[in-house]
Design a protein around this nucleic acid. Sequence first.
DNA 1: TATTAAAAAAATACTTGAAATATTATTTGT
DNA 2: ACAAATAATATTTCAAGTATTTTTTTAATA
Lengths: 225, 225
Amino acid sequence: MTKIVILYFVYKIQYYDFMIEHTSISEPIYLRLKEMILNGELKQGEKIVQEKIAELLGVSRTPLMKALLALENEYLVESIPRRGMYIRSWDKKEIIDIYICREAIEGMAARLLAQSGDENIINQLKDCFSPFLNSKDINLNAYTEADEAFHSLLIKLTGNAPLDKIYFFGNIHEKVIGHGLIRPPEETLNEHFKIINAIEKGDADAAEKFAREHIKKSRDLLFDQ
Amino acid sequence: MTKIVILYFVYKIQYYDFMIEHTSISEPIYLRLKEMILNGELKQGEKIVQEKIAELLGVSRTPLMKALLALENEYLVESIPRRGMYIRSWDKKEIIDIYICREAIEGMAARLLAQSGDENIINQLKDCFSPFLNSKDINLNAYTEADEAFHSLLIKLTGNAPLDKIYFFGNIHEKVIGHGLIRPPEETLNEHFKIINAIEKGDADAAEKFAREHIKKSRDLLFDQ
DNA sequence: TATTAAAAAAATACTTGAAATATTATTTGT
DNA sequence: ACAAATAATATTTCAAGTATTTTTTTAATA
């Protein structure tokens, strides 16, 4: 990377967001481990022997520990003092509890977006599902990705950083439910648009209601299994 | 502590919750730092020079780092890569955003408690404020403590661990608003009981509504200032 | 004197090794 | 088969050192 800067400016101001390009080792470790947890390379309940993982990834223990602590805070890793770090395993009760959290968070997000009245927001949300609108055969993988993008976007577009920070449950559902969707696209596509339309209309109560119902339906289905 | 255990049992089962009594150094460091942040010993925006704090607390940097990472995840400390850790400073927008999160979380908690129909829960909630019920002059410090206990209890009593995990904003309000209450006890005491009564009646919608309104009123007041 | 450039100092991020402690597995004796 | 003792393993913490980046200080220049 070539830095072209006026030095006195650098001295006074030094950093802009677009300048940031840090290479911290714990970051890629974190991402790799997350991937390994979510795709099943590391199994639920499995113990993470720190030195072995460090050797496997070719890194030292310090940045590995940092990554593990970040994962612990995202509910992907569980630490038992003096015994070690384990890949968290979620029982039914805990998954339900997570869905309840999502209900609260995403419901509030939908409300906030409806109140914002930002046209650009509507377009971004619509764009998630526009490829599937008039297609007979919906590609499941593509739809799953779109679904995840939509739910994540719903939070991000609020511009509420703390809300985004407490929304780290999106990961978990993917893994725990086993890579598949809980309900078919035919059923959920319509629900997604009910949420988007309510946001577009500026109807905050309806937006929140639909967002909640959408998640609750999946939750209820999990419970029945 | 005297351990009396049948060894073969220990070999097989080994740990119960009540047995846990771990001595990790990062834990007291974490607690001390949290205290220092919340009581103002460490000021907002202040840089945390790791070696100095480590020396001050008489510990090495390893467990200090662990504690700082935990605090970062609780929104009390902000890390800027390669530049250091800083005590987070919250602007008005961010405080509002935090209150919005609380609205979503505590609202959901009130709903869950109302659905539970557990008599014991009602009693615990009532106990928070019973000392102030018939008193003319309410002790502000005592009431502030009771208020914090109540809001924290509201979450804990749901038994929803993930919900409790994402509720780490209780801390912040205390410090940021400046140790004082936003609104007088005369105003909020009644609101608290409206929430409790709705929970007692099992009216989930009302419980959530009142819990939300309660927080929203404080939020609106912050916004007006 | 105000700016700029260069040099020095300080701090972070990471590595590595080692000691202390606790946990887990194995061996031994009854 | 069981209990106790022992050995092996892993975590946690400390510590010292290296490389890199940031910040401060000093010197030079217009």
